[in-house]
Amino acid sequence: DEFHFHWNGRDIRVRGDSEELRRLIEAIKRGELSEEEIERAIEILER
């Protein structure tokens, strides 16, 4: 699976399928994380 979302003017695409990944992306979409937490998560996910 590939998750695709927009954040902070960026087009983010992440491959993978796990419950943890889904929860993280939902939290990002709901605005539950700080900008710094989101940046760090995206860096890890894009590897």
Rank of each mutant, 00 (worst) to 15 (best):
D1W: 01
D1H: 07
D1M: 04
D1R: 02
D1L: 05
D1K: 04
E2P: 02
E2V: 03
E2N: 10
E2L: 02
E2D: 15
E2A: 02
E2I: 04
E2M: 02
F3A: 01
F3E: 04
F3Y: 12
H4A: 02
H4M: 04
H4E: 07
H4I: 13
F5E: 01
F5S: 00
F5P: 05
F5K: 00
F5D: 00
H6K: 01
H6W: 02
H6Q: 05
W7N: 02
W7M: 05
W7D: 02
N8V: 02
N8A: 05
N8C: 07
N8P: 01
G9I: 00
G9F: 00
G9A: 00
G9H: 01
G9Y: 00
R10N: 05
R10A: 07
R10T: 06
R10E: 06
D11Q: 14
D11I: 15
D11M: 15
D11W: 03
D11R: 11
D11A: 15
D11L: 15
I12Y: 10
I12E: 00
I12D: 00
R13V: 15
R13W: 06
R13C: 04
R13H: 15
R13Y: 13
R13L: 12
V14N: 01
V14S: 03
V14M: 06
V14Y: 09
R15S: 13
R15Y: 05
R15G: 13
R15T: 12
G16Y: 06
G16I: 08
G16P: 10
G16K: 06
G16D: 05
G16R: 05
G16M: 04
G16T: 09
D17P: 10
D17W: 06
D17Q: 06
D17G: 11
D17E: 11
D17N: 11
D17H: 10
D17M: 08
S18P: 09
S18G: 11
S18K: 07
E19M: 09
E19V: 10
E19T: 10
E19R: 06
E19D: 09
E19F: 06
E19N: 09
E20R: 05
E20N: 09
E20T: 09
E20P: 11
E20W: 06
E20S: 08
E20K: 07
L21E: 09
L21F: 09
R22M: 13
R22Y: 10
R23M: 14
R23N: 14
R23L: 15
R23G: 13
R23H: 14
R23W: 12
L24C: 03
L24Y: 05
L24E: 00
L24K: 01
L24I: 10
I25P: 00
I25M: 10
I25V: 14
I25A: 07
I25C: 04
E26C: 08
E26N: 11
E26D: 13
E26P: 01
A27N: 14
A27Q: 15
A27L: 11
A27E: 10
A27G: 11
A27K: 15
A27F: 08
I28V: 06
I28F: 05
I28K: 01
I28G: 01
I28W: 04
I28N: 01
I28S: 02
K29C: 03
K29S: 10
K29Q: 10
K29E: 10
R30D: 07
R30K: 15
R30Y: 09
R30G: 13
R30H: 11
R30S: 15
R30N: 11
G31N: 14
G31D: 06
G31I: 04
E32S: 13
E32Q: 12
E32A: 12
E32L: 11
E32W: 08
L33N: 03
L33P: 04
L33H: 05
L33G: 03
S34P: 08
S34L: 08
S34M: 14
E35P: 15
E35Y: 15
E35R: 13
E35W: 07
E35A: 14
E35C: 07
E36R: 13
E37P: 01
E37S: 12
E37T: 07
E37R: 06
E37K: 07
E37M: 14
I38M: 12
I38W: 05
I38K: 01
I38F: 06
E39I: 09
E39R: 09
E39D: 13
E39A: 10
E39L: 13
E39V: 12
R40N: 10
R40E: 07
R40H: 13
A41E: 08
A41S: 10
A41W: 13
A41C: 09
A41L: 11
I42V: 11
I42M: 06
I42W: 04
E43W: 01
E43Y: 01
E43R: 07
E43S: 10
I44Q: 11
I44V: 15
I44C: 05
L45T: 04
L45N: 03
L45V: 07
L45G: 03
L45E: 02
E46H: 08
E46A: 07
E46D: 09
E46L: 11
R47N: 14
R47P: 10
R47E: 15
R47A: 13
R47G: 14
